[in-house]
Amino acid sequence: MGQTIIDVENITFHYHQEAAPALENVSIQVNKGEWLAIVGHNGSGKSTLARILNGLYVPDKGKVRVCGVELSEETIWDIRKHVGMVFQNPDNQFVGTTVKDDVAFGLENHGVARDEMVRRIDWATKKVSMDQFLEHEPHHLSGGQKQRVAIAGVIAVQPDIIILDEATSMLDPLGREEVIQTVRDLNDQGTLTVISITHDLEEASKADRIIVMNGGKKFAEGTPDEVFKLDDELVQIGLDLPFPLQLSKKLREQGIPIKGNHLTEEGLVEELWTLRSKM
């Protein structure tokens, strides 16, 4: 990591000119190969920022560069060649009657030759462990499986960046874990730079870096450990701390000598077992 793949410089965006800005003077950088989580409550500006990064909106002021291409009305389609997006509701993303048809849809739109299309469908569905479901109808799949198919449809086009816009918010815990692990595997393999837009800090804790949005502005930025040290400041702007972090705090208040601010249940359980073995 280290090479800048997205550079956002002092952007401001209004949905209506007479209204308050949805984004005001926001600057961020995204490094190639990293997983960046952008978090905030509803109305914080995080989803607006995601849509600008995908060229769905163009900022009123400031500059956005994606893979060296500066975003403008003329370059929107060039930007979208580099950025794929997975939205909140998987049922609204399907256009094909089978998994195979759905993954093929984006490839057909990009004019990919048939032989190459077959190869990419096979590659993408294997990457998300859905290659055994090619002839299945999407509405028969679980929520987590549907989102994995949506991810396959995005990566088959081979973008440099994938944006998950609240892509796990409608899933049960198992489906959420399926999707996050799928994306983590792709990110670890160097296939994708990942930007996840979420209000779920437990999901964000798995990212390499977190940007916190509030009121259309950047509130905080850093590694998960650095951001979660803000503790009550995050609660004050409407965010819920990850359960393991809350529990670590409560245990210390009860006199149990928990040293770490644990972001995962596994880390907390491991420390508790260590403490128990010393008793």
Rank of each mutant, 00 (worst) to 15 (best):
L36Q: 13
H82F: 12
K249R: 14
E34N: 07
L171G: 11
V269A: 10
S169Y: 13
G40Q: 05
E266Y: 08
G55W: 09
S248I: 01
P257Y: 01
V235D: 01
A50H: 06
T191L: 12
I211N: 04
R114V: 10
V103P: 09
K32P: 00
A204R: 05
A204V: 06
Q236N: 14
V179P: 10
T4N: 05
S47C: 09
I197T: 04
D160Y: 00
D91I: 05
V86E: 05
G222Q: 09
H41A: 15
K229I: 07
K249I: 00
K32T: 14
D232M: 13
G106D: 12
T264G: 02
P138G: 03
K218A: 04
Q254T: 00
H14W: 13
L53I: 10
L239P: 03
E221G: 03
D225W: 03
G260N: 14
H41Y: 09
G2Y: 04
K32M: 13
R209M: 04
A167K: 08
E24Q: 15
V99E: 11
M170P: 00
E178I: 03
A104K: 14
L23F: 09
F133G: 00
I162H: 07
L234V: 06
E166V: 03
P257L: 02
E18S: 10
V83P: 10
A20F: 03
D188W: 02
P159Y: 07
E73H: 14
K217V: 10
G190L: 00
L230E: 13
L171N: 07
R276Y: 14
V83S: 08
H262F: 13
